Computed example of a mutant assay.
Amino acid sequence: MEILFSEMPNPFTYFVPLFFLLIAGEAYISYREDKELYSLKDSLASTWVGIGAAVFNTLTKAYQIGLFFVFYQLFEPLRIQFLGYDNLGWAWWVWVLCLIGDDFNFYWHHRFCHTIRLFWAAHLVHHSSDKFNLGTAFRNGWTIFLYKPIYWIWLPILGFNPVMIALCMSFNSIYQFFLHSTLVPKIPVFGQVFNTPWVHQVHHARNIEYLDRNHGGILIIWDKLFGTYMDKDKHMKTEFGVLHPPTKHDPITLNFHEFNDIWKDVRSVKSWKAKFMYVFGPPGWSHDGSRKTSKMLQQEWEQQKKAMPAQKEAQPELVA
């Protein structure tokens, strides 16, 4: 059975009322218990960025699925010749494999968004808030939809239907909405395999030791497999946001200020290697060492942490 793009349901339509109901409930709890999870300026920024992201996602949806269909059709003769099938169909196990493949793609897409500055420029808006609440989930970069599908191309090549892929991507996004809350405690067994709000707080934190951790979407096992997992320390205060927050909070600035900074850095150097690194190197890289990447900052933090016990031991004891 084939489903046409024009017939594809939009899962978000059914979840939007639930999203707003939960946001209202979280805001009420925040107000009642004086938790300060929301602020008017921050919520307005999230709303406008979210509306823009929804518009850009809608406008690029045909491009994204169309790209999948191109590779789906292009490789059909090769699948028949070398793999013995034309497509994988719609069986339940195909859905399971597609969901797993989609989440694997999301992990690497998300990880590169934090380690390649050009992609970080598109993703930074999602981390720009110093609040962590369900409304933050709507802060998605407007330009991210242009390159994101590239990570998914291998799925239609193998014969996964493009509509199935698009639906799995939507299911992943819906699941991630529920990750953006500080009101959910640690979930012991479930949290060993699946991503939870507890560990997603680490991902949104600007604490040095938490930088570039927990990139998974639905599953947290990718972070455990590829060395980017870190549990939340309940004894340490979590600071949310980015190390160098933007000075303005309008949606245009939030979405494009890092692209402007990249352009300024590229123009400031003559070396083509430096120009390349300012675009495709890690965020924080600089040709003169005046700035530091997250790995550099974490190495310094580790050295300071190791030096602290030695410093305590070296201090003379006070004799009464």
Rank of each mutant, 00 (worst) to 15 (best):
P283L: 06
Y210C: 10
G241S: 11
H244V: 14
G216M: 06
G227H: 12
S268H: 14
H249A: 06
G227E: 05
K264G: 02
I221G: 03
T196F: 01
T196W: 00
I220D: 00
I208W: 02
A205N: 08
M230C: 07
N255S: 08
D261P: 00
R267A: 09
D288C: 13
T228Y: 03
K237P: 00
K248V: 02
K273C: 03
Q192F: 13
Q192R: 14
K224M: 09
H287N: 15
N195P: 03
L254P: 00
F256Y: 13
E209C: 03
F194G: 01
D212Q: 12
V199Y: 01
A205G: 11
K275Q: 10
V242I: 15
G241P: 04
N214K: 12
V193A: 09
F190R: 03
L254W: 02
V193N: 02
D233P: 01
F194H: 10
G216F: 07
P246H: 04
K270S: 15
W198M: 05
L225G: 06
R267H: 08
I220K: 02
I208E: 12
V242F: 01
W222Q: 06
I252G: 02
M230A: 14
K270G: 15
H244Y: 12
M236S: 08
F190L: 11
G217D: 11
K232Y: 07
M236E: 15
W263E: 03
K275S: 09
F259L: 03
W222G: 08
Y229L: 01
M236F: 05
S271N: 15
K273R: 15
W285R: 01
V202G: 04
W285K: 01
V199G: 00
G216W: 06
I252K: 05
F240M: 11
I208D: 07
S286P: 00
G191H: 07
S271E: 11
G216V: 05
F259E: 01
K275N: 04
L243N: 09
G217V: 11
L211R: 00
T247H: 09
D223R: 04
F226T: 09
L211K: 00
Q192I: 07
I262W: 13
W263C: 03
